[in-house]
């Protein structure tokens, strides 16, 4: 499984993602510079976290105009798997590959902590190694993770089973205090209608090595590594 990781100026989780796909999983992994206009031969594309273009104007708003983005959109539209993590999620919404927008956390502060999540859909190529409704812990680290979309669109997402992860309490409840940033319906990660583009604020690449305190993230990358036939 060949992974490609897009590097914008200001990306800073690029090395961490490569560490997991390349060093932990041993898969060939290539950095793709934002000025490129073509993707190399890859099977999975990751848009990593960070502060592309310093988050100036709006997180992800400038990165979507990078030369590489046409190729990214083309790759996604052909049905290939694309994962946007944190700033990558913001870029995907700005580029129109995913619905909604990510607003500033309702605390107005950056938040870095472990968060409990519920896997809302394991019927995706990103999550098929998780159990249905499994509770997992992943780190979050963001200033703008407050996922927003209007009520009708949210209902549409729920109906289409596009919600992949939700913030919950340790025991799996969607209590107010379990929502770290004010996201609509506690949404932490979604996929597009076709199911091949995933955007998520939590960082699975930071939970893929036991020495760092948790390994609930590694199965996301392993899901991509292993075959999945949608039932």
């Amino acid at each position: 499984m060949r992974f490609g990781i897009v590097v914008f100026p200001g990306s800073n989780c690029d090395f961490d993602c490569k560490y997991v796909t390349g060093d932990v999983l041993g898969e060939p992994t290539t950095f793709i510079w934002h000025r490129e206009t073509k993707l190399p031969e890859i099977d999975v594309l990751i848009i990593p976290g960070g502060f592309s273009y310093g988050d100036y104007l709006r997180a992800g708003a400038i990165a979507r105009f990078s030369p590489i983005m046409d190729a990214v959109i083309d790759f996604a539209e052909k049905g290939n798997p694309v994962v946007g993590i944190c700033n990558g999620f913001q870029v995907l919404t700005e580029a129109g590959l995913l619905p909604g927008a990510l607003l500033q956390n309702n605390s107005t502060k950056f938040i870095c902590q472990w968060s409990s999540l519920r896997v809302e859909s394991n019927q995706t190529q990103f999550t098929h190694l998780y159990q249905p409704e499994e509770l997992i812990d992943l780190p979050i680290a963001h200033m703008d993770g407050n996922y927003y979309l209007d009520a009708d669109a949210a209902t549409e997402l729920e109906k289409n089973d596009q919600i992949v992860f939700r913030y919950v309490s340790k025991t799996g409840e969607t209590t107010a205090s379990a929502n770290p940033n004010g996201s609509v319906n506690h949404i932490a990660g979604i996929c597009n209608k076709a199911g091949n583009v995933l955007g998520m604020m939590p960082h699975p690449e930071r939970a893929s090595d036991a020495v760092l305190g948790g390994i609930d993230g590694i199965r996301l990358f392993k899901s991509l590594q292993s075959p999945w036939g949608k039932s």
């Binding site: 800073n12 989780c13 090395f15 961490d16 560490y19 997991v20 502060k109 950056f110 938040i111 870095c112 902590q113 780190p139 680290a141 960082h203 690449e205 930071r206 090595d209 760092l212």
Partner: peptide, 11 residues
Amino acid sequence: YQQYDHMIQNN
């Protein structure tokens, strides 16, 4: 410290 990203770089 929860305002500081203290996990980046995976170390």
